[in-house]
C-alpha cells in the first residue's frame, strides 16, 4: 500500500467543563502520514497546540489497541469513525485524503455528560453492571472447572457477547441514546452459561431498571447500535434480553 502525506482541517468540540457551554473550533494539521492512527494525528495536533501555548484537546484513550473501550470520538457523524467494527484508536489515516475536513464531537447523551472537550462520563455503565451484571460467587468456592462441561456453541456465543468493551458507541449512535445493546451483551454473556442461570431473572430486571434510572432512552429497534459497535455485538442479544425480561415478568417468582 502506498504511503502518502496530507493536510487536514479539523473541527473539534471544545468545552471547558461540564458546566460551561462548548463550541466548535477549527484547526489545521499538515504532513499527516497515511500510516498514522487517528489518535496519533490528534497527538500531532496537541503537540502543535502546546507549542503555540494553547491548551491541547482533551480526549480519552488508553490501550490504543481497540480493547479498553476508553477512546470515544464521534467522527463525521459516526462513533469511532467510518471503519466497520473499529475503535477510534484503530482507525488509521489511510481513510482520509489531502484537503479533507473532519468534524469531531464527543459522545452525546444526557447520561454521558461531557467532562471536557471530547471526554465524557460513562460511569452509568458501571452502575448498570453493579445492579446485576455478575455471578454472585465468592473467591474460593469454585469446583473444578471441567466439572461443568459447556456446549461449545453456547460458550462461543457467550464469548461473543462478552467481548463488549463498554465503549458506549451504541449509546452515541442510537437516536434514542439507548444503552440496550450494552445491557443485552452483559445479560447474554451470563444467561448463555449455566453458571449464570440461578440469577438470570433478577439480573435482567435489575439491570433494565438501573438502565432506566440512569436516563438512557428505550430501544425502538432502530439498529444503529449494531451497525456502529466496534465489537460486532449483535441485535440478537437485545432479542435475548427481551426474552429474559419477559421470562422474568411471567415467572411469578417473588424476587424475579
Amino acid at each position: 500500500m502506498e504511503h502518502y502525506n496530507m493536510n487536514l482541517t479539523l473541527k473539534v468540540w471544545k468545552q471547558k467543563n461540564c458546566k460551561e457551554k462548548g463550541k466548535f473550533e477549527t484547526f489545521q494539521v499538515s504532513n499527516i502520514s497515511s500510516e498514522m492512527s487517528f489518535l496519533e494525528m490528534f497527538d500531532i495536533l496537541n503537540e502543535q497546540l502546546v507549542a503555540e501555548g494553547k491548551e491541547p484537546i482533551a480526549f480519552d484513550h488508553d490501550c490504543r489497541e481497540g480493547i479498553c473501550g476508553m477512546c470515544s470520538m464521534y467522527i463525521n457523524g459516526r462513533p469511532h469513525g467510518p471503519w466497520h467494527q473499529t475503535t477510534t484508536c484503530q482507525l488509521h489515516m489511510r481513510e482520509y485524503k489531502d484537503g479533507d475536513t473532519i468534524v469531531v464531537e464527543p459522545w452525546r447523551a444526557n447520561s454521558f455528560p461531557v467532562i471536557k472537550d471530547l471526554v465524557v462520563d460513562r460511569t452509568a455503565f458501571d452502575r448498570i453492571i453493579a445492579a446485576g451484571g455478575y455471578i454472585s460467587v465468592n473467591t474460593g468456592n469454585a469446583q473444578d472447572a471441567n466439572c461443568l462441561p459447556i456446549d461449545k456453541q453456547k460458550a462461543d456465543e457467550s464469548f461473543a457477547a462478552a467481548s463488549c468493551i463498554g465503549c458506549g458507541a451504541c449509546v452515541a449512535a442510537c437516536p434514542n441514546a439507548s444503552a440496550m445493546l450494552f445491557v443485552s451483551a452483559k445479560v447474554s454473556h451470563l444467561a448463555l452459561l449455566p453458571q449464570g442461570d440461578p440469577e438470570r431473572k433478577m439480573r435482567a430486571s435489575n439491570m433494565v431498571k438501573q438502565m432506566d434510572i440512569e436516563g438512557f432512552g428505550s430501544c425502538t429497534n432502530i439498529g444503529a447500535c449494531e451497525a456502529e459497535c466496534p465489537k460486532g455485538i449483535s441485535l440478537e442479544n437485545i432479542a435475548r434480553l427481551n426474552r429474559e425480561y419477559i421470562g422474568a415478568m411471567f415467572s411469578g417468582s417473588k424476587e424475579g
Binding site: I135, G140, A142, Q143, A145, A155, F159, L193, Q195
Partner: peptide, 14 residues
C-alpha cells in the same frame, strides 16, 4: 481457572 469459570469467564472450549 476454577474461580474464573465459576464467575462466567467464557474460556475457549472443545
Amino acid at each position: 481457572i476454577d474461580q474464573c469459570v465459576a464467575q462466567g469467564v467464557p474460556f475457549a472450549r472443545e
